[in-house]
Simulated scan of single mutants.
Amino acid sequence: MTGRATLIGFGAVLLWALLALFTVGSAPVPPLQLNAMCFAIGGTLGLLWSARSGGLGALRAVGWRVYVFGIAGLFGYHALYFTALRLAPPAEAGLIAYLWPLLIVLFSGLLPGERLRPGHLVGALAGFSGAALIVGGGAAFDAAALPGYLIAFACALTWAGYSVGSRRLGAVPTDAVAIFCLGSALLSALLHPLFEETVWPDGALGWAAVAGLGLGPVGLAFFLWDFGVKRGDIQLLGVASYAAPLLSTAVLVLSGIAAPSWTLGLAALLITAGAGIAARASFAKAD
């Protein structure tokens, strides 16, 4: 069962590698509206899955604080992510957002009973060097993209803080993710008219991108990941997640959205390697 659950968790990493591609394809839908549309799809999918598996009853046992925390994490991360990719080049902004695996390791080292090791610091230096290369090292750097890069970094901080903070909530059934998604959709729908004008997807391709987001990276991926980390090899899945920046960048380059360059490739390698080095320091302690 462990091997099968781990493979299921790998599916989430593959779906997350498509997040940037589908986000670009969903333009010009504004971020909060996109949040509402995608999470409505993902949450409905989750409820149907829970109803079929008989997991709806478990939702009543989940405390309201858990629901508030989960909704805030999903809403905050994706609102920031969608905004960043609207304001900055998607490959570069996506890589900065993918500093979250490294930040999770660093933040975990600050928990009670934990400490930062030299490997953590080396990994942080590598990862942040990759981000700095994006912001200041490219010949085509555009100062107008700086707000997008800063929002992408806030996005990484948000998901890392959410992931580390969730460790303090105890065991939460996977079915609760559906409520997280639907709550995020409702919150986004309420805030959307206050800050944005409604803009619908552009043609069939745009609608397909929105549907793809809701069904995959902003839907099924959460359930696959939750199932995998609870029943599979969590360390192996953690290592696999560090490949997400490389996979996401490769998808954008292969699709023609991002132009291949040494700067982009080196930044992707530094950010991925930084997370891996930091994680190896944590594994060494565990051994």
Rank of each mutant, 00 (worst) to 15 (best):
I8N: 11
V13L: 08
L19A: 15
L32K: 12
N35Q: 11
A40L: 14
A40C: 11
I41F: 10
L45W: 02
G46R: 13
A51C: 06
R52Y: 13
R52P: 08
S53E: 15
G55S: 07
G55L: 10
A61E: 14
G63M: 01
G70M: 12
Y77K: 03
Y77S: 10
L80D: 00
A84L: 12
R86I: 00
A93Y: 03
A97P: 12
P101Y: 07
L102T: 02
L103A: 00
I104M: 08
F107S: 09
L116T: 10
P118T: 02
L121R: 12
G123E: 06
A132F: 04
A132M: 03
G136Y: 04
G136M: 03
F141L: 01
L146D: 02
Y149M: 06
L150T: 11
L157V: 15
G161R: 02
S166E: 13
L169A: 00
G170F: 14
P173R: 03
A178C: 10
F180R: 13
S188R: 09
L191S: 09
L191D: 10
H192Q: 15
F195P: 03
E196F: 09
E196S: 04
V199E: 13
D202Y: 09
A208R: 08
A211I: 15
D226N: 15
V229W: 07
R231N: 15
G232F: 04
G232H: 08
D233H: 06
L236W: 03
L236K: 12
V239Q: 03
V239G: 04
A243Y: 00
S255E: 03
W262G: 01
T263C: 01
G265N: 03
G265D: 00
G265Q: 02
L270N: 04
L270H: 02
A273H: 04
A273L: 15
G274A: 00
A281T: 00
